[in-house]
Design a protein around this nucleic acid. Structure first.
Length: 500
RNA sequence: GCGGGUGUAGCUCAAUUGGUUAGAGCGCCGGCCUGUCACGCCGGAGGUUGAGAGUUCAAGUCUCUUCACUCGCGCCA
């Protein structure tokens, strides 16, 4: 007992089992990750992980109970599913009965839950495992758990409301209080003000467009940028003159590695003294405009990027995030939860030279933008929404297309051939023809939600048996080779040499 | 696929400019002590310095290759 105030007088002692010497002490947390993962069952005994696993359970239970109370039905969908090679790489499972054919593990139950809507299920949810064979990050595991939900005859508002309900319930279960209604920001505003579609609003540092104030200067970079329809964006860093040369250089490196040509600085040394490469190019009037628009005062620094908006905003966004680290702007007790809405429907893939879906190809275009699909795809907004927590994308959803003609228009723009469409999604298009109701939904990453609620730095802390960055399991040593007989039954041959 | 960090005893770490037999704490083993509660005392075992190659009279230390863990970029509809 931690207090040491209770003394136990034993009357007998029976040893049920004895333990080998543990490879590491269990009363601290100092070991390297590989040791801990190899003996995960010992690591899991420690309070740090015990708490996380318990909290995760409570969060999932609260969400499940909430959705149940709202009339949602939990329905399981197959794990052995069909490969639809758009999007993330699939994990494949060979079929013994149909040699040479493969199941795919689901990246999400997207199509099946939509088919449940066609099937007359009004309200569906599932706490389900999803699989994506992509490279890992601290916040990305190859298999992860979603709280997946879908509602028929629902619009965006219905989904946001239900989500605020069950996410709120889950967070409350983890001891986190959030507003009943989460603040919203459009994708456009998020990009223009914070340079990210998942801005961390635990700190401010928003951008100001100063293009108008520097339209007429002799500064070549500005003129070239503006002539090419670019923008001059700045972020004011209060007290930023305390940044060291080294720190400012690092911010410049981040801007450049994000595609910007450089990062201009203006130091507000005193009331009438600025230090900047720009001082000799700008008039007093122009400076006054900038001072007023940014609100910069003595001790501040302005960081400026001139480029196309598509480059300037995200680059400055990366600078913004680094600034938060450098200046320690984030209060770890804060919890920022926001909706980001109105994502663009399409993004242009420069490599493949074609339009791709920003969210997924079943996302409904904004009703006002449907006429723009073929003429100006870049201007089409979607009925989609992300839930962003502390700068992480926690959930993502959309209103779906429930009309097979509209769905085919989208596929056409994505340059999917008739044959491809039929092979991959034929069953789905067909289903939409049988009176599919309007429907909408969302999926939230339970692992990430738990990680954020528990303020852990890695998903590994909220998953009982996580994988390493190379997607291996150090405890079981998966993945491993299989024996000849297994391959033979599947009529598979290994083409690569051992060790790869 | 690419860039950064780490890798020395079971665990956490140290080892000056390349220089004697690679050390310490904890743990482990043996003994002593027996009102302990991070017990204490005495003694002991334990290392291919992740692996391989190279430079050198001499490599934990320098160079190259490679592996593992990790953070990020690409990737993640």
């Amino acid at each position: 007992m931690p207090t040491g105030r209770i003394e136990v007088h034993a009357t007998g002692l029976e040893i049920l089992n004895s333990s080998a010497t543990p490879p590491f002490p269990l009363d601290d947390e100092e070991e390297s990750d590989d040791t801990r993962l190899t003996y995960r069952y010992l690591d899991l005994r420690r309070p740090h992980l015990q708490n996380a696993i318990q909290t995760r359970h409570k969060m999932a239970l609260a969400a499940r109970n909430y959705l149940d109370s709202q009339g949602f039905l939990e329905i399981e969908t197959p794990i052995l599913a069909k490969s639809t090679p758009e999007g993330a790489r699939d994990y494949l499972v060979p079929s013994r009965v149909h040699p040479g054919n493969f199941y795919a593990l689901p990246q999400s139950p997207q199509l099946l839950k939509q088919l449940l809507m066609v099937a007359g299920t009004d309200k569906y949810f599932q706490i389900c495992r999803c699989f994506r064979d992509e490279d890992l990050r601290a916040d990305r595991q190859p298999e992860f758990t979603q709280i997946d939900m879908e509602m028929s005859f629902a619009d965006q508002e219905d989904i946001l409301k239900i989500t605020e309900g069950f996410v709120g319930a889950a967070l409350n279960a983890a001891g986190i209080e959030v507003e009943e209604i989460f603040p919203r920001i459009t994708y456009k505003d998020a990009m223009e003000k914070y340079g990210s579609d998942k801005p961390d609003l635990r700190f401010d540092l928003h951008f100001v467009d100063i293009s108008d104030f520097v339209a007429e200067t002799d500064f070549n970079a500005f003129n070239v940028t503006l002539a090419n329809n670019g923008v001059i964006k700045t972020v004011r860093v209060p007290g930023g003159t305390s940044l060291t040369r080294k720190q400012i250089d690092k911010l410049g490196d981040i801007a450049r590695s994000s595609g910007a040509k450089g990062l201009l600085t203006v130091k507000y040394l005193s009331e009438n003294k600025k230090q900047s490469p720009l001082t000799k190019f700008l008039s007093e009037e122009q400076w006054n405009g900038i001072d007023k628009a940014t609100g910069a005062i003595e001790g501040d620094i302005l960081l400026i990027i001139a480029d196309k908006a598509l480059i300037a905003n995200p680059a400055l966004g990366n600078v913004r995030n680094e600034l938060a680290q450098m200046l320690n702007l984030i209060n770890q007790n804060d919890f920022s939860i926001i909706w980001v809405t109105d994502f663009p429907l399409f993004a242009f893939d420069e490599n493949e030279q074609r339009w791709t879906s920003e969210h997924h190809p079943f996302t409904s275009p904004h009703p006002d933008d449907i006429d723009l699909i073929e003429s100006s795809p870049e201007r089409v907004r979607s009925c989609s929404y992300d839930l962003v927590i502390n700068g992480f994308e926690a959930a993502s959803g959309s209103v779906r297309i429930h009309n097979s003609e509209l769905q085919e228009r989208i596929f056409n723009l994505l340059k999917l051939s008739e044959t491809e469409i039929n092979e991959r999604f034929g069953f789905f298009i067909n289903a939409l023809k049988f009176g599919a109701p309007p429907h909408a939904g969302l999926a939230i990453g339970l692992d990430r939600l738990a990680m954020l609620a528990l303020k852990r730095a890695s998903l590994r802390d909220v998953i009982a048996f996580p994988k390493t960055q190379k997607a291996t399991d150090l405890m079981t040593e998966a993945p491993t080779g299989v024996n000849e007989n297994q391959l033979k039954e599947l009529e598979l041959k290994i083409a690569v040499t051992e060790g790869n």
